Simulated assay, not measured.
Amino acid sequence: MNVISLRAFNDNYIWLIGNGHKAAVVDPGDAAPVLAALAERELELVAILITHHHQDHTGGVSQLLAAYPDAQVFAPAGERMPAPAAIAVQEGSRVLLPELALDLTVLEVPGHTLGHIAYYGNDLLFCGDTLFSGGCGRLFEGTPEQMHHSLSRLAALPDHTRVYCAHEYTQSNLAFCHAVEPDNSRLLTYMKEVAKCRQQDVPTLPSSIEREKAINVFLRVAQPDVRAAAEMFALRELNEEHAVFAALRRWKDDF
C-alpha cells in the first residue's frame, strides 16, 4: 500500500491510497488530479474519505462518482454530506476497505469545523485541517477548548504514526513556531530540512506524531517557554493549557 500526494489549488494535498489495483482518496477538493493519477496508475477508485465540509476538500466528489459510481463515500455525520449516498461516520466508526487491507477508525476532532473528523489506522493519520506540521487549523466554527482537546487526542497517538495533513503550510508554520520558541534545537534542524524541501519543490509531508510533539508549539502548550511566550503576547498570566493555546492561535492568526 502506497500513499501518494496529489497537489490541488495553491497548497492543498489530496492523498491517494493505492495498492497497484484499487485506490481510495482523502479530501478530493478537485477531481482532475485524482482522475489523472488513477488513469496513469491504472487504479480503480473504491472509496472517498472526507474530513470536513469545506469546498476545497469536497469539490471533486460528484465528478469522481460520475467516473466511479460504485465508490463509497465516507463523511462526518455532524456536517452536510458531500454526496446523497455518503456513509455518515462518527467517533468510533470503522472504515474497512478490504481491497486495500485498510482498517481506519474515525476520531471526532472539532475545532476547525464543528463536525471535523480524522481517520486513523495502519499507522496512518489523515487529519484534514485539524493538525498541520508546525501548526493547526483556524477556528472557523469551534472553540479553543475544543481544538486543544482535539490536538491533545492526536498527540496521544503512537509516536511513529505518519501524519498526512491537507495543506503545505509547513514553512510558514515553522516561522511562527520559531518566534514562539526560538531556542528549540529540534525545530531549528527541521526548519533547515523544510527549507531544502521547498527549494526543491518537494512536499514536506507526511510528518509524524513524534516530530510534531517536538516542534509544533500548538502541541507544546505545557512547555514553560511556550507558556511564557504566550503570556507575553496576551499580557496576562495563563493558568490553563487551553488558554495558552487560545493565545497562540490568536497570535498566529495575525502573524
Score class of each variant (00 low, 15 high):
residue 7 R to Y: 11
residue 145 E to P: 00
residue 148 H to M: 14
residue 255 F to W: 15
residue 48 I to H: 06
residue 162 R to A: 14
residue 108 E to K: 08
residue 93 S to G: 03
residue 170 T to E: 14
residue 187 L to V: 12
residue 181 E to C: 14
residue 209 I to F: 07
residue 65 L to Q: 03
residue 246 A to Y: 13
residue 209 I to N: 00
residue 200 Q to Y: 12
residue 194 V to K: 03
residue 129 D to W: 07
residue 27 D to T: 06
residue 85 A to V: 02
residue 96 L to Q: 13
residue 40 E to N: 04
residue 121 G to T: 05
residue 205 L to A: 00
residue 232 M to C: 03
residue 197 C to A: 07
residue 169 Y to T: 11
residue 114 L to S: 10
residue 125 L to D: 04
residue 134 G to W: 02
residue 183 D to L: 14
residue 232 M to K: 09
residue 53 H to V: 09
residue 130 T to H: 08
residue 60 G to V: 08
residue 178 H to I: 01
residue 71 A to N: 07
residue 125 L to P: 04
residue 164 Y to V: 07
residue 54 H to G: 08
residue 234 A to C: 13
residue 23 A to R: 00
residue 58 T to S: 15
residue 52 H to T: 02
residue 91 E to G: 10
residue 232 M to W: 06
residue 198 R to I: 07
residue 99 E to Y: 01
residue 192 K to P: 04
residue 109 V to E: 01
residue 243 A to K: 00
residue 17 I to S: 04
residue 101 A to P: 04
residue 106 V to T: 05
residue 249 R to F: 00
residue 39 A to K: 14
residue 179 A to Q: 12
residue 30 D to C: 08
residue 239 N to T: 05
residue 151 L to T: 04
residue 128 G to W: 08
residue 214 A to V: 00
residue 153 R to F: 13
residue 40 E to F: 06
residue 67 A to E: 15
residue 235 L to R: 11
residue 23 A to M: 04
residue 133 S to G: 12
residue 166 A to C: 14
residue 178 H to K: 01
residue 225 D to C: 09
residue 251 W to L: 09
residue 83 A to H: 06
residue 59 G to Y: 05
residue 18 G to T: 09
residue 29 G to D: 11
residue 175 A to F: 05
residue 245 F to L: 11
residue 109 V to K: 00
residue 46 V to H: 07
residue 173 N to L: 09
residue 214 A to P: 02
residue 182 P to H: 02
residue 65 L to G: 00
residue 238 L to M: 06
residue 71 A to V: 10
residue 136 C to T: 07
residue 227 R to I: 07
residue 53 H to I: 13
residue 228 A to K: 09
residue 14 I to T: 14
residue 13 Y to T: 09
residue 57 H to K: 11
residue 158 P to F: 13
residue 84 P to A: 05
residue 173 N to R: 06
residue 116 H to D: 11
residue 199 Q to N: 02
residue 247 A to E: 08
residue 56 D to L: 12
residue 7 R to E: 12
residue 190 Y to S: 06
residue 173 N to I: 15
residue 8 A to N: 03
residue 66 A to F: 00
residue 61 V to P: 04
residue 33 P to R: 05
residue 56 D to S: 14
residue 202 V to I: 08
residue 175 A to P: 05
residue 140 F to V: 02
residue 17 I to Q: 03
residue 13 Y to G: 10
residue 7 R to N: 09
residue 249 R to V: 05
residue 233 F to Q: 05
residue 76 P to K: 11
residue 48 I to C: 12
residue 233 F to W: 08
residue 91 E to M: 15
residue 122 N to S: 14
residue 110 P to D: 12
residue 118 A to D: 12
residue 215 I to K: 00
residue 36 A to T: 08
residue 209 I to R: 01
residue 132 F to K: 00
residue 245 F to K: 05
residue 233 F to P: 04
residue 102 L to R: 03
residue 214 A to E: 11
residue 238 L to V: 07
residue 242 H to I: 14
residue 28 P to N: 06
residue 218 F to E: 01
residue 25 V to Q: 01
residue 111 G to R: 01
residue 50 I to G: 02
residue 210 E to V: 05
residue 117 I to Y: 03
residue 8 A to Q: 03
residue 65 L to M: 10
residue 3 V to G: 10
residue 60 G to L: 09
residue 189 T to M: 12
residue 60 G to E: 05
residue 75 A to Q: 03
residue 87 I to G: 07
residue 59 G to E: 01
residue 161 T to D: 06
residue 243 A to M: 10
residue 209 I to S: 01
residue 30 D to T: 09
residue 241 E to A: 10
residue 184 N to T: 08
residue 75 A to C: 14
